[in-house]
Simulated assay, not measured.
Amino acid sequence: MIRFATIGTSRITELFLESAKRIPDFSLTAVYSRSEEKAKPFASKHGATYTFTTIEELGACEEVDAVYIASPNAFHAEQAIALMNSGKHILVEKPMASNAMEVKAMIDAAKKNGVVLMEAMKSTVMPNFVELQNHLHKIGKIRRYFASYCQYSSRYDKYKEGIVLNAFKPELSNGSLMDIGVYCIYPMVVLFGKPLSVQASSIKLESGVDGEGVITCQYEDMDAVIMYSKITNSYIPSEIQGEEGSLIIDQIHTPTHIEVRYRDNRTETISSPPEHPTMYYETKEFIDIIQSGKHQSTNNSLHHSLVTMEIMDEVRKQTGIVFPADKK
């Protein structure tokens, strides 16, 4: 049994717990929030014994083995490092941190303390993504990776009214790239590694974050095109193009239907409907790593998280998106 604490009481933590409670070896022991008024009812609702309002108290709790961090991006690194220094395993929401400098510090802390650190990128540990990896050879020499994730944010309506919510605040290391674009970049890194070059453009909002953007990446013998947005919708699938066919992915962030379309017009469905809620798989992967004595996930590895963040740093550098966390 792995005894968890959660940081954050938002909807994403609710979804995490709905999924995690399906895993027999998962147990929720504690809840952290900056306010006792939020921590206590959340803990009561989900059956947690302890509540904490300081990271130091949480780190000192011997009844907690692992912590799921779903705080704003700007707090990920500081909280994770403090808890890893207290011997806790860390499952941290995407993106792992504000920048590559913070990710490197988190990786150093994980290695120094001999604990598991994993980014909660759900898509790349889902069974359908593994099937995609297993069938990649069928489309021959790969020439292009195309990923699109454009989802109009309900918070953008408030933004246009002059109310800037967390999703559009640079001081929290937020914006379209960090919230949406990462879902397109991470699978590319898992499948093809680090690109040789990156070119980016984006629409910068008055608050200082990006509303949408486009990234092109060059590999030795293929390219990649990524489109992401929080201010428009898109309804087109993502695609990996090979010389013998293409893999069509319905949703790059949550692949539920994937098919191969061959040059001779044959089609082959290689996906299956998920048996569990999407966040189940990242939690199961994390628990399995801890119990097996391994140090990290194969797909959601520390290397993949670092390369993804290095790409996002370069995108922000080219598009003029700067966070306060970059100046620390």
Rank of each mutant, 00 (worst) to 15 (best):
H303N: 14
I12A: 11
Y281K: 01
H303L: 14
P95W: 13
I231N: 07
E131H: 09
I248E: 01
P273K: 03
V103N: 02
G162Y: 03
T216L: 07
S19C: 09
P237H: 09
S197N: 10
V64K: 11
D65Y: 13
E282M: 12
A43S: 09
S202V: 06
N300C: 11
T29S: 15
Y228F: 15
L83D: 04
C217S: 10
M126S: 03
Q218M: 12
L132F: 01
L191A: 03
S197W: 03
M106I: 01
R144N: 11
R316C: 13
D264L: 01
H304A: 14
R155S: 13
K88Q: 05
Q218C: 04
F26C: 03
R263T: 02
H253Y: 06
M227C: 10
T6I: 15
K317L: 10
K138G: 00
A30D: 08
I270G: 03
S35Y: 14
E239F: 06
T232P: 01
S98T: 09
T53L: 02
P127C: 02
R155G: 08
T13N: 15
D157W: 02
T298G: 04
G59D: 04
E275L: 12
I258S: 01
M106D: 07
L132R: 04
E62Y: 05
G242A: 00
E161D: 13
T232R: 15
D250L: 08
K328F: 13
K204G: 01
Q291T: 06
Q241A: 07
G181S: 07
K122Y: 15
Q241W: 06
R11E: 13
G8D: 08
M118D: 02
E36T: 12
E275H: 00
R143D: 08
Q296C: 04
I69Y: 12
G211I: 03
E314C: 06
I289K: 02
A167S: 14
V31D: 09
Y149I: 07
I2G: 04
G213H: 08
N85F: 09
V182S: 09
E161S: 13
C184W: 03
E131A: 13
P324C: 12
G47Q: 06
A120N: 12
E93W: 15
